[in-house]
């Protein structure tokens, strides 16, 4: 059943990939909390800031890593023509940087950085370009090819890096409105707390 693990990536990169895969729920917190701080402090990205080498608020990503994540965001969330909030109006990169990368264990972060480089170099063999240099259609095709790769690290990277970027976008409540999702309701609905239950009656069962 389990296929052999590729040795083409440093073990820390594989650990980072594992961490990305399991961050589905942990990320919610970090992204949720950091998103609020980033939105309140750094403000939204101005249109065009996406092309800047390192926008304000980015402390952990290198310029090269930022370029990869920014390119991936543009490729996976082309919101033009849809009702979704344009990614440029959400501080996705700042959220990703402050909420996840800044809190990673150093060896995990280094592994992830290696994975990002590996991902960026990935299209060289087939397309003759780095990921950041691919056109939109080529970049989307590359992501889909790796998502269905026989190589475990390629599947994990395609799935994991997209999840990272996607969470940094969807964790922002303003992105929910176009979906029709109304979020928390207990207080809105006026539900009162029932509090603690009273002490129970004397126990019925006896040990046997």
């Amino acid at each position: 059943m389990p296929e052999p693990t590729s040795t083409s990536l440093h073990p820390h990169t594989l650990q980072a990939l594992a961490q990305i895969q399991r961050m589905d729920r942990r990320a919610f917190l970090r992204f949720g909390l950091a998103a609020a701080g980033v939105a309140a402090g750094a403000g939204l990205l101005a249109p065009g800031a996406a092309q800047a080498a390192l926008p304000e608020g980015i402390k952990v990503m290198s310029a090269g890593e930022h370029a990869v994540f920014q390119r991936l965001l543009a490729v996976m969330l082309p919101t033009d023509g849809s009702a979704l909030v344009p990614a440029a109006q959400i501080p996705v990169m700042q959220t990703l940087d402050a909420a996840l990368l800044a809190t990673m264990e150093p060896h995990i972060l280094q592994g992830l950085k290696g994975g990002v480089r590996y991902f960026d170099d990935g299209p060289q063999a087939r397309y003759g370009k780095r990921f950041t240099a691919l056109g939109d259609a080529e970049a989307a095709r590359f992501c889909d090819e790796w998502a269905d790769s026989p190589e475990l690290p390629q599947r994990a990277l395609a799935m994991g890096l997209k999840k990272l970027v996607g969470l940094a976008y969807w964790a922002h409540p303003p992105t929910w409105a176009p979906l029709g999702y109304d979020g928390p309701v207990t207080r809105k609905w006026g539900l009162q707390s029932l509090g603690n239950a009273p002490l129970p009656q004397v126990s019925q069962a006896q040990p046997q």
Binding site: D24, R25, L29
Partner: peptide, 29 residues
């Protein structure tokens, strides 16, 4: 009264490893 009904917050405050616990392969949360 501090629950937020946002999984973002709940995972960090209520779950093991802030919701990040997984198997060694990282593919089962």
């Amino acid at each position: 009264e501090k629950f937020t009904e946002m999984m973002a917050i709940a995972m960090g405050t209520l779950y093991q490893d802030h919701g990040g616990q997984s198997n060694a392969d990282g593919d089962i949360s």
